[in-house]
Write a protein that binds this DNA or RNA. Structure first.
Length: 659
DNA sequence: ACGCGCCGAATTTTT
DNA sequence: TTCGGCGCGT
């Protein structure tokens, strides 16, 4: 791999902490992998003393594969490439006892956490998704900052903080009772352990002698603390980030952490990577011009040796349906004239709901597409159901799991019975499942309910008792296939769901077979913080994704759709005066394009069923007008012309698809 | 306990 | 427009 001068500098400098400011497409992954190779080959680092931390499993996996192919499996696989959460779990595993949990703990995902908060709150907040989410964010923030419920209570300066402290405490108590951790805990608890225990700290500092961190602009406070604690007194670290691609601040990411590095590590050397290897000149110029409207801590100017490229097109359509028709028609013609594959095209949008129309248009013309984002594998009802069963079998105190599955498939255990059980649980400070086991001691339970509960507990206990958990046998006992048929709208849908179930079971079986001591809890937790991606990647299909999901990816031809005020920038960001992050989002979208970039908008659009006029995104005016082709369509066009245009797209498509 | 129907709300989401 | 949550009726 031939590195440029700056990249080489970032690789070679190991005497002091290094911050690599890596612009879009500047080859940061190469820097990380080459640096690891340099550390091993030239600096005598043992591979298992090097850790590369990323945010996504996908990125971690990619890096692992790259190292494997560069160093060979025997060296490459020894390097710890993980996400913050995986690393957190590794740190917790040994010392889980010190954080009031036991070995078979469960991980609660966001929905589980929200459900817990919902159960802990009263009317007004109860049931209000938005408010619950805000509450959860505030608790997350506390965890990130290392603030405990008691500290929050004593420092509370207003009523909301007092309220938060109360809920926070109840939430933590409940999590402890359930022997559960949330995603935040997987970072904040390791930080606490590293911070407070000299033995743990030195163990990990000794274990990880060189630390590399990717996407640093996305770290939150807790993750930064983790980096600092692992780096230790003689920091051997390289972090890579780009403040212009910080698009997760709304989720607690602190791009200021980039700046903070300079203060915390006075010897820090900053290396800027400004040569872009991805985009053609025009795309880059447009991107630079746009992002220049944002304030910068570190100035940088991306440049490219690639060819000029074509002008960036901006296409105004009459409404969102025309927009979709246009994009599909244009895409098809570009594919043929440019001899491109479907997978060279991406359609990027701000919100998932925008995908629908494009999906419809693509289906209409039989064009293969793949939609990423939206419903993740783990968000699917059938997967959540089964994961809940597995969690409950591994950890009977997992109330969230218990609530989810106690009446799925139907066992006639309804709200009333559940309420009685929950009350018994609170009275005795025990989990729901324990209450179920002791149901004969609970008054107010009818005979029918008793029987139903007994059947349920027996099912779970039986699975628990077996020395080797047999997934297939369990599914049959459960009758989950029948349940899917009953509850799905069509046999087709049921089949799809059943396939998902099969997929999950394969992973569970694999996990159980792989580990030397089969442990269901371990396998389930690993799965939850990994991510099953179904193997559909090789098919040649148009990619539909949100701007957020597009970060880190690149496509030959990019369509950025819905370039309108209230969509991009999104309305709520306008209201909260948070335009800069939206501008970065736009910047991320533009810099995904290698050659062609088309931005589209609709002059009117249905919002909540109402048709209303739209306004072009302010970002369009921030682009260098000489580089863009923006046909000025004067005034609204008539119904007739609209029909003509529609017909035109149809004809064009029909001709192209035939040829 | 369950199912239907009405009403109200609708960014982004690495783990 | 579509989806999900809640409440009422069976």
């Amino acid at each position: 791999m031939q590195l440029n001068e700056r990249q080489q500098r970032a690789v070679d400098q190991i005497a002091c902490p290094v911050l690599v400011l890596a612009g879009a497409g500047s080859g940061k992954t190469s820097v990380i992998t080459e640096k690891i190779i340099h550390l091993i080959k030239n600096c005598h680092y043992a591979p298992d003393n090097i850790a590369a931390v990323t945010f996504t499993n996908k990125a971690a996996k990619e890096m692992q594969q790259r190292l494997r192919s560069l160093l060979g499996p025997d060296l490459g696989d020894k390097i710890r490439t993980s996400t913050f959460h995986t690393l957190g779990m590794a740190i917790l595993r040994k010392d889980i006892g010190r954080v009031n949990r036991s070995h078979h703990f469960s991980i609660f995902d966001e929905q589980d956490s929200l459900q817990v908060l919902n159960d802990l709150t009263e009317r007004q907040i109860k049931g209000d998704k938005g408010l619950l989410y805000e509450l959860k964010n505030r608790i997350s923030f506390c965890k990130s900052e290392g603030i405990k419920p008691k500290q929050l209570r004593s420092s509370a300066s207003n009523q909301q903080q007092q309220f938060d402290a109360h809920i926070y405490q109840a939430y933590q108590d409940h999590m402890e009772l359930c022997n559960a951790l949330d995603f935040d805990d997987l970072i904040s608890l390791p930080v606490e352990l590293l911070n407070e225990h000299q033995d743990i700290r030195s163990h990990w500092q000794n274990q990880i002698r060189y630390l590399l961190v990717d996407e640093y602009q996305d770290t939150n406070q807790a993750q930064y603390q983790m980096v600092k604690l692992l780096a230790g007194p003689d920091p051997k670290i390289t972090v890579v980030g780009d403040d212009d691609q910080s698009i997760y601040a709304w989720r607690g990411a602190k791009p200021e952490n980039l700046q903070q590095l300079q203060e915390d590590f006075p010897t820090l050397e900053v290396v800027k990577l400004e040569q872009n290897y991805r985009c053609c000149q025009r795309v880059l110029k447009v991107a630079n011009h746009l992002i220049a409207n944002n304030p910068h801590i570190f100035e940088k100017q991306l440049w490219s040796q690639h060819q000029q490229g074509e002008q960036i097109r901006i296409i105004e359509n009459d409404d969102e349906e025309h927009e979709a028709d246009f994009v599909v028609a244009d895409l098809v013609s570009q594919r043929i004239s440019g001899r491109l594959k479907y997978s060279d095209f991406a359609i990027l949008y701000r919100g998932n709901h925008q995908a629908k129309l494009f999906e419809k248009a693509l289906i209409k013309h039989g064009i293969p597409y793949q939609i990423s984002g939206g419903m993740s594998f783990f968000a699917r009802a059938e997967i959540r159901d089964l994961m809940a069963y597995f969690r409950l079998i591994a950890n009977p105190d997992d109330d969230a799991a218990c609530i989810r599955v106690i009446n799925v498939p139907r066992r006639s255990i309804g709200a009333k019975t559940l309420q009685v059980l929950a009350q018994a649980g609170r009275d005795n400070k025990q989990s729901l499942f324990k209450s179920c086991k002791n149901s004969h001691n609970i008054a107010n339970l009818g005979a029918r309910a008793q029987t139903a509960i007994n059947d349920f507990t027996q099912l779970i206990e039986q699975a628990r008792a077996s020395t080797q958990f047999d997934v297939d046998k369990f599914l049959i006992e459960l009758g989950y296939d029948h349940w899917l048929m009953e509850t799905s709208s069509s046999p087709k849908v049921a089949e799809g769901r059943w396939n998902n179930v099969q997929e999950l079971c394969r992973w569970i079986k694999d996990g159980l077979a792989q580990s030397d001591s089969p442990d269901l809890a371990e396998v389930v937790n690993q799965l939850l913080i990994r991510d099953l991606q179904q193997q559909e990647e090789d098919s040649d299909s148009v990619q539909l994704l949100t701007l957020h999901a597009a970060k880190g990816l690149e496509y030959s031809q990019v369509y950025m759709v819905g370039m309108e005020e209230d969509l991009l920038p999104h309305r709520s960001s306008i209201e909260e005066d948070n335009i800069e992050e939206e501008r970065r989002l736009c910047y991320v979208g533009i810099t995904r394009a290698k050659h062609g970039l088309v931005m589209t908008l609709a002059k009117k659009r249905r919002r909540f069923g109402e048709v209303s006029a739209t306004e072009p995104s302010r970002f369009l005016e921030e682009l260098p007008q000489e580089e863009i082709d923006w046909p000025d369509q004067a005034g609204p066009i008539s119904e007739e012309e609209q029909q003509d245009k529609n017909q035109f797209y149809r004809d064009q498509l029909a001709a192209l698809l035939k040829g």
